[in-house]
Computed example of a mutant assay.
Amino acid sequence: MPDRKRFRRYLVSLRRGLHILAAPVKGDSGRGGLFIQAYRGYGSRDRVFLMGRVFRQPGFGASLQEDWLRRDLLDLMRRLLRKPIVGARVRVRYKGTTAVVETDRHGFFRVDMSLGEMPSDVAWHSVELSLDQPTDERATTTGEFFTPPHTASYGVISDIDDTVVYTGVANTLKMMWRLFAQGADSRVIFEGVPELYQGFHEGPEGSQSNPLIYVSRGPWSIYQVLVEMFRMHRIPNGPILILREWGMKRGSLLPRRARDHKLDAIRHVLDLYHPMKFVLVGDSGQHDPEVYSRILRGYPGRILAIYIRDVSADPERSEAIARLAEEAGEGGCELVLSDDNRVLAEHAAEHGLISQDALAEVRRSKAEASAG
């Protein structure tokens, strides 16, 4: 009997995973043709930035709309067979403002558009995307971007790999297995992360809607999985910036190093949201302390705190980060290194970044994980 229940649970998990993996190609209902996939963007009162990709995908199985399992299997196959469109011209519309951008050699497009009309004071806004060239009236979609409301007092830029999620979950199949098959026991998310990040989002007053922007070294293929993982674990919504394609230009033979991508991404966010202050969260294993130290030097007075998850057992690495922490302190910012989110939350509460209620939630989560 237990084996039968476990099998049913795995079958349900498989179906959920298939649906998430197949989601990016579902906008054409199996007809095939050109398709625009938009990723969450972010904006200010006068500017918006977002990314997306244009594909040509095969069409088959359009008559199977009622058979959702076979539909998902076919859509997953169509996703594997789709091809990026180079040089496509994408028209972007937000209220009365329009811009046209072109896809690169990987089919990606980047929108950095001035807004003629200021967004309303809500967190998420819709933007319409369509194709000018090649022409396909069906290839339209709606994207979304975030703007901080007037209540926001600071922002958070957080790494994902080894900071929010455990090592190895950037592997799509491993992530899907842990997330859907193993459920609450999967250890996909570090203990206390949802509660700490919710505390950041709510701020010390509990209702500030501070923006959270996430960066990942994984491929864009895991984007939809990350979105679902954040939803399942109640981590606050925010744009997810994938660093592998960040800053790649037509004609370049090799991408820039990931640390340069991260610098570019963080600088773009800080420039867009000037003079808002930020908290930077990362891990000790992939140059985050060095990158964040460079940001601190380049944007004096803009960084409230640097939180680094300790994932290294190397004493030399710990000593190097200690030197960076000393340097950060001289620049008026504390760099906190710990493998326990309670330590980070206690520092954040002490410095007025999160509420005491949020701190209590982080402690409760850690206590429950230890007891389990």
Rank of each mutant, 00 (worst) to 15 (best):
Pro24Phe: 00
Asn237His: 11
Ile222Trp: 02
Asp132Lys: 05
Ala88Cys: 08
Ala139Gly: 03
Tyr39Ala: 02
Ser186Gln: 06
Arg4Gly: 10
Ser126His: 12
Asp46Leu: 05
Val281Asp: 11
Ile222Phe: 01
Leu131Trp: 04
Leu263Thr: 12
Phe7Ile: 13
Val100Asp: 11
Val100Cys: 12
Gly32Pro: 03
Arg309Thr: 01
Leu337Ile: 07
Arg364Asn: 12
Arg91Ser: 12
Met113Ser: 09
Arg56His: 12
Val291Ala: 08
Tyr94Cys: 10
Val54Glu: 08
Thr147Cys: 15
Val12Ile: 08
Leu359Met: 03
Arg256Gln: 13
Arg257Gln: 15
Arg105Tyr: 10
Ile321Val: 03
Leu131Glu: 06
His261Asn: 13
Gly17Asn: 04
Gly301Phe: 11
Arg82Tyr: 04
Tyr94Val: 01
Arg297Phe: 04
Val92Trp: 10
Ser207Gly: 09
Met229Leu: 15
Leu344Thr: 10
Phe200Leu: 07
Ile157Gly: 04
Ser355Tyr: 10
Phe180Arg: 10
Leu76Cys: 12
Ala258Lys: 13
Ile242Trp: 03
Ala358Phe: 08
Gln356Val: 07
Glu202Lys: 13
Pro134Lys: 15
Arg178Asn: 12
Phe230Gln: 10
Glu191Met: 02
Gly143Gln: 05
Thr140Ala: 13
Arg267Leu: 06
Tyr42Ile: 01
Val86His: 14
Phe35Pro: 00
Ile189Asp: 04
Ser284Val: 00
Tyr299Ile: 03
Tyr223Ala: 03
Ile160Asp: 02
Arg257Lys: 14
Arg138Ile: 08
His351Ser: 09
Val100Arg: 14
Leu18Ser: 00
Leu69Ser: 07
Arg178Ser: 15
Ser207Gln: 09
